[in-house]
Each structure stands twice: as C-alpha cells, then as structure tokens.
Design a binder for these strands. Structure first.
Lengths: 220, 220
DNA sequence: TGGTGCATTTCGATA
DNA sequence: TATCGAAGTGCACCA
C-alpha cells in the first residue's frame, strides 16, 4: 500500500463529473490498484476514488491518470508532496461476520411460531420465477404464507414481497397466499404500505429469538 | 490525520459482531475522530470502522477502544507498530458535482417537450401523501402526466412511479393520470415492467438537453 | 457478464 | 431529530 500525502487537485469524469480544488489530502493506492483520495474528515468514504480493475499512469509524478475499461477517468494533479511511503501488507485473512439477515432468516425458520401462532415452515428460499421467497409457511388452517425477512423493513421490501405474492397467487395449489413482512425494525411508511395491501407486519427481536433457539437446543 | 501501519487484530460489536485476525493493516484516524481499518485491497471500503462522533481511548498504545453513544464498540489490539505518522490537512474545500438527477430534473422541467410533444409543466416536486412526484405535467389535451426522473432507470424506479400514479388517481381533479419514466438509460427489465403498466419510457440525452437549454438562453 | 438483493451501507434533504 | 430516497453506491450471489 502506497500512502501519499500531498497538496493536490482532482478531477473525475465518468458516471458524473466532479472536481476537487487544491488542498492537502491523503492519496491511498492499494495493492489491487484501486486509488482513493481522503480528506481529514467525513466518515470512511473518500472524496474521490477509482476501483480496481484500472490502469494507473504516474509517468509524470505531478500528474496522475487513472482510467478503467468503462471510460471513467480520474486525474490527480500533485502540487506538493508532503509524504510518500509504501508498506507491504500481504493478503488479508478477511472479516468474520455474525448477525446479518441470513442468520435472522435461519432463526425464523427454526421458530416459525414467531411469525404467527401455529405457523409451520414449508421451506426456506422457496423458488418463484422472479427469485426465491425467504420463507414459505402454512398457517394452522393450512393456508400458504409467504414471508419476507429484513433487518430493517422499508418500502422496497414491501414491494419485493408484493411481487412474490402476485407470482405465488398464480399457482393454483397455493392460492390464496398471505404475506408476512418480518424485520427487526419496520419503518412507518413501510408498515402503512404493507397493511394497506393486507400484509401483516411482525417485528422480530433478534436477541430474544437467539435465546429461544439456544433454549430449545438445551432440551436435547 | 494519523496514519498507523501495524500488525493488529480487531473486534467490532454493535450492529453486528465482526472479528479480524492478526495481520498488517492501515489504521486511519481522521480529525473528526472517525477510525477506519484498511487492508491492502478491496475497493475503498475499510474492513472495519467507527464513524464520528465517537470516543477514542488510546491510553494503552497496544489496545485501542473506540465507542459511540449507540453502544457500538471497536477494539483494536496492536501487536507491532510499523509506522505511525500524523499530518495536518486543514478543512477540505469539498467536492463539486455535476450531472446528477437534480440537474436532469431541472433540465426536463425547462424542456417538458422532451417528455412528449406539447407537454406543459404544472410543477416540480408535486406533493402526494407518500412523497413528491418529480414532475407533474399536462399533455396537449390537458390530461395529467406524472413523470419520474432517474439517471439510470431500473425496476424500483418504475415501482416508485406506480405508487405515485396509484395515489394521484385517487385525486378526482387529476384522474386519470398517465405516467412517464424518464432516464438517461433504461434497463430492459424496467422498460418491460413500465410498458406492461402503460407507463411510457423516455430516454433522455443529458448533453443534448443541456445544449437545448443553453440555446434557449442565447435567444435572450 | 448482467440482474438482483443486502449493507455496521453512507450521505444529503426535509419535515 | 427521524425519515426517506439517492449513490460514481460496493459487493456477493446466481443465471
């Protein structure tokens, strides 16, 4: 990784046009070739960048050009170099994560009762011609229930579930299919839209659900 | 901005749990306090981070703790410091952008003819109870036309316009409202969905539109 | 290679 | 401050 601290101006032309006036910034060049220009503030997002794969030309150390195959271009004009260092880091072993939507889906699949008294799981990732539904269940009366699982429930999640319901309803063996929108948190507008379409909203407590599952495991 | 290159392990606990095994990485601490841990690859996104505002405790230089008011915590254990530098950068003058959706909307508002012969603008950001429609126009016969403007037209844009049309149609003074989906580029699947719902698709040439507007200005 | 959905999304505008 | 929609979104996954 090469780290250049320099007074520079930057121009980007590609998906939009953008310009950075002269100032001191950090230019980070990673081993995969991606370039990022950071100011001394503003979260982790750089002011400007060019992802790999790209071509970086620094023949003229005062004027860098980064281009990619999509015709995007980043021009960095360097007025004064304050620091220029390079460090070998090797390949990173990578990040281990826990607690994302996939895990929430697992927990709900193991505890369909959370989605409604007496609910029974038919299968996870139930296929339709526009993609898989997160969960397909049956209620105590044997009626099909399609479940969309989100960490945070917003309008586009309701739209997604609506499209699935439309498709599933065409299947004579399932019709009529009801919808359940399950999330750790549901935005008010998403709730309004869901309920106006007869979709039930279920707010899920992740930690509680994890507790139930581990309690059940203790029974064995 | 403080730049530390170090062999480290990192743990994050907050919106999810994540762990980084021991490796050499860049730890970037910005003036606003935000902390980002970068590997030598993988676009501009850091492996781990904590945005401002937060509290950074480095009393023990081998074990940093970053916490915020939401109860999130980042622990950085430093096994070996390879480099540790600090640079003053001052406040960045910031990024100037051009070519985004707002500008496209302005240009279309100034040239409603682009959306259809004889189209007249009623107003931009026409309010509904689920949010404002980009443009509301009337066609030569005086019928209402709702326009959704996107840089790139994809399925969710069609869904958005459909929701607006649904709402506007409830307004007796406007009904029936037609829809126009305007974008610099329209994905085939979005076009199919739009047309199946009777929504007209208009591909807009940004540069040409800008030319028309400047030509009109020259007339004055 | 392109389409779809998720993200510790981030970011900005607005009510 | 919450909420909503856009982003040069990035990224994984799958066809």
């Amino acid at each position: 990784m090469r780290l250049v601290v320099a007074r520079c101006t930057v121009d980007y032309e590609g998906r939009l046009q953008a310009h950075l006036p002269e100032a001191v910034r950090l230019i980070m060049v990673k081993a995969d070739g991606c370039v990022a220009i950071h100011a001394d503030g503003g979260a982790y997002k750089p002011l400007n960048w060019m992802n790999a794969p790209n071509r970086l030309i620094t023949d003229d150390p005062r004027s860098w050009r980064v281009t990619n195959s999509k015709g995007e271009e980043l021009r960095i004009t360097i007025h004064e170099v304050i620091s220029d260092t390079t460090h070998e880091m090797g390949v990173d072993p990578g990040l281990r994560k826990d607690g994302v939507e996939a895990h929430l889906q697992e927990l709900l699949a193991a505890n369909p009762d959370t989605l409604g008294e007496g609910m029974v799981l038919v299968r996870r990732e139930y296929p339709t011609d526009i993609g898989p539904v997160d969960l397909l269940c049956r209620d105590p009366e044997g009626r099909a229930v399609a479940v969309e699982v989100k960490r945070r429930g917003e309008i586009d999640g309701v739209e997604q579930l609506t499209r699935y319901l439309e498709r599933l309803d065409r299947d004579g063996t399932l019709r009529p299919v009801r919808g359940v929108f399950a999330a750790q948190q549901i935005k008010p507008q998403a709730r309004v839209l869901a309920e106006s379409r007869g979709i039930r909203c279920v707010v899920v407590d992740y930690d509680e659900l994890r507790g139930i599952t581990s309690d059940e495991l203790k029974l064995f």
